[in-house]
């Protein structure tokens, strides 16, 4: 089912999202991947604040290619989420409500999704040129030295994603395969 939602994605909104829904997101989201997650968690361990407003936030696991002059951003598709599995439960417990990436998640992340009424979306892997068109603004907010891995705040418009794991822990990667599996 096609749904249109605006950020912030709150627990009220994740209530309505079911595994398998096709969702178009509009609003502000953060971008962070491996090195940025590592730094954010290290900051927390030192007792420092996070550089992003984590409550009801959406984090997109992505590292864009460089923008040409006049472009908002370069190619901007999702990276593999499992590399963020070590860090995601900590951020979810602090208030992160939605993650966008691609690929499987660990049982610990799925537990944290259920515990926090969060949601895991997949964007289409390898569709970086298409997805860049839905990004209307982009600014680096910290860790600029990480290059493509810097933390960004972006404005998206009708950014297409699919609900893979909903707040009840239903997992589309497991259910959808069964339907077409004859091996």
């Amino acid at each position: 089912m096609d749904k249109y939602i605006n950020t912030p994605i709150t627990a009220e909104k994740t209530e309505e999202l079911k595994s398998g829904d096709y969702v178009y997101i509009t609003g502000t989201i953060y971008v962070a991947r491996d090195a940025a997650h590592k730094r954010m968690i290290e900051a927390l361990e030192r007792g420092e604040n996070l550089p992003i407003d984590i409550k009801d936030s959406t984090i997109y696991y992505m590292g864009p290619s460089p923008a040409r002059e006049g472009q908002v951003i370069g190619s901007a598709g999702p990276t593999t989420s499992s590399r963020m599995d070590k860090y995601a439960p900590i951020l979810l417990d602090l208030g992160e409500k939605a993650m966008i990436g691609k690929g499987k998640r660990s049982p610990e992340v799925i537990d944290a999704i259920i515990r926090n009424k969060a949601v895991y979306f997949a964007a289409i892997g390898g569709a970086g040129a298409l997805l860049s068109k839905c990004i209307k603004k982009s600014e680096i907010i910290c860790y600029e030295d990480l290059g493509a891995e810097a933390v960004r705040k972006i404005e998206v418009e009708n950014f297409p994603v699919i609900v893979v794991i909903d707040k009840n822990g239903n997992n589309l990667y497991e259910t959808a395969i069964l339907k077409y599996s004859n091996y």
């Binding site: 992505m62 590292g63 290619s65 370069g74 190619s75 598709g77 289409i124 970086g128 068109k133």
Partner: peptide, 15 residues
């Protein structure tokens, strides 16, 4: 995606 990459000279995938 392939069409946009071709026409606008954006990498097909950011990786």
């Amino acid at each position: 995606n392939l069409k946009i990459a071709d026409e606008e000279k954006i990498p097909i995938c950011q990786d």
